[in-house]
Amino acid sequence: MSEHWDPAFEGLLKEILPRLAERGEVGPDISLKAVGLDSLAMVEVLMTVENTYGISIPDDDLEPEVFTSPATLWALVDRFRESQATA
């Protein structure tokens, strides 16, 4: 596990993207597209992240760059976890 995110995040990515799971450890800069992230998987990742963390990410924040790597996706998730926890 990376020190950048919790085990649930890594687990959900591995569950949705089996080719990512085959790599073993999930590095922060792995291309999610290279391990099978397509538009359907993107929706599944988003829904699972929102349900797992009890957050709601507005469509305006869902730029394609967010889904570049585990690190870019986690940065968005973590930002909303923090902002919605203080709200």
Score class of each variant (00 low, 15 high):
5 W>I: 09
68 T>Y: 10
16 I>M: 03
23 R>T: 11
37 L>N: 01
19 R>V: 10
32 L>Y: 11
84 Q>L: 14
10 E>Q: 11
15 E>Q: 13
45 V>P: 02
83 S>P: 03
40 L>S: 03
49 V>F: 01
62 L>M: 06
48 T>F: 07
65 E>Q: 15
8 A>W: 10
9 F>H: 02
64 P>Q: 05
61 D>Q: 13
25 E>C: 09
16 I>W: 05
7 P>E: 09
23 R>I: 14
74 W>C: 04
26 V>T: 05
5 W>G: 06
82 E>M: 11
40 L>Y: 05
42 M>L: 15
69 S>V: 10
18 P>W: 14
64 P>F: 12
58 P>H: 07
7 P>R: 07
48 T>V: 08
8 A>I: 13
24 G>D: 00
62 L>D: 01
9 F>G: 00
81 R>H: 07
74 W>K: 02
82 E>P: 02
66 V>P: 00
29 D>T: 14
42 M>V: 10
10 E>I: 08
6 D>E: 14
20 L>P: 01
42 M>Q: 15
16 I>T: 09
23 R>A: 15
73 L>S: 01
41 A>L: 08
55 I>C: 00
38 D>E: 06
60 D>P: 01
84 Q>M: 13
74 W>N: 03
33 K>V: 15
48 T>Y: 03
38 D>A: 06
72 T>K: 01
13 L>Q: 02
41 A>Y: 02
53 Y>E: 01
35 V>D: 00
11 G>L: 05
19 R>S: 11
78 D>W: 09
85 A>P: 03
11 G>P: 01
58 P>F: 09
3 E>S: 15
56 S>D: 10
24 G>W: 11
31 S>G: 09
38 D>N: 12
46 L>Y: 07
45 V>R: 00
72 T>C: 04
77 V>P: 02
48 T>D: 05
66 V>M: 03
60 D>C: 13
21 A>Q: 07
34 A>K: 12
15 E>Y: 12
69 S>D: 03
23 R>P: 12
50 E>F: 08
49 V>Y: 00
31 S>E: 09
76 L>V: 12
12 L>W: 03
1 M>N: 13
34 A>N: 10
6 D>F: 10
57 I>L: 06
42 M>S: 14
53 Y>D: 05
28 P>S: 13
85 A>Q: 08
37 L>A: 00
10 E>H: 08
56 S>C: 09
27 G>P: 05
35 V>A: 01
5 W>L: 08
24 G>F: 08
71 A>R: 12
44 E>T: 14
62 L>A: 06
40 L>W: 04
70 P>R: 00
18 P>Y: 13
39 S>F: 06
2 S>T: 14
